[in-house]
Simulated assay, not measured.
Amino acid sequence: MDASKQLISTQKNVLGQPLESCGSDPLTGFYRDGCCNTGAADVGMHTVCCVVTQEFLEASARLGNDLLTPMPQFGFPGLKPGDRWCVCAARWLQVQRAGAACPVVLEATHEATLEVVPFEILLQFAVIPKTLQ
């Protein structure tokens, strides 16, 4: 079993349940496996699964984290509104404090996020699963 698959099977989300996939189009995650899992190599803690909005993308770029511009040399396609992406917990919180937070998928957001972002804030921006709508 490769290391990223092992991480997926053992890591938990902010709800204390098994971490779910965040997205595959574009393929997200620090390990580019579709999940917001983390490990020692992920110093940026790419653990928040969010559904990016134009407002979020523009605010993030203004704050120094350009997620709009493709960087093929790093396998990064550039994001557009509606994409699901694993963002750094501290960066998500920075954009939230600037008034431009985007929705968060709690089931796919790694529990390590709680070291940076209070659960109550994540809950305010939570995507409601289709099964509960």
Rank of each mutant, 00 (worst) to 15 (best):
W92E: 05
V127F: 03
K12R: 15
T47G: 10
T47I: 09
D42N: 15
G64D: 09
L27K: 05
A3W: 14
L123G: 04
F74I: 03
Q17C: 05
A100R: 09
S4G: 01
A90N: 07
P72L: 08
A112H: 12
S24F: 13
G99Y: 02
A112G: 09
L122Q: 02
E58A: 03
L7Q: 10
S24E: 13
G64S: 06
F56H: 06
Y31W: 15
E55I: 00
S24G: 15
T109H: 03
S9A: 13
V104W: 07
A3S: 12
M45D: 12
G75F: 06
K130P: 13
R97C: 03
R91A: 05
D33C: 12
A101N: 03
N13E: 02
S4D: 06
C22V: 07
C49H: 06
P70E: 03
A89P: 01
C50W: 02
P129A: 11
F74S: 11
A100M: 01
C49A: 00
M71C: 02
A59V: 11
W85T: 05
V127H: 02
R32V: 02
M71K: 14
D25P: 00
Q133E: 15
G99I: 07
D25T: 04
L114T: 03
E120Y: 06
C49Y: 01
E20R: 15
K80Q: 11
Q124N: 14
H110G: 09
R32Y: 06
I8Q: 15
R91F: 08
L106H: 00
A126C: 01
G82Q: 13
G82V: 11
E120H: 13
L15T: 03
P129G: 10
M45H: 12
G34I: 05
L123I: 04
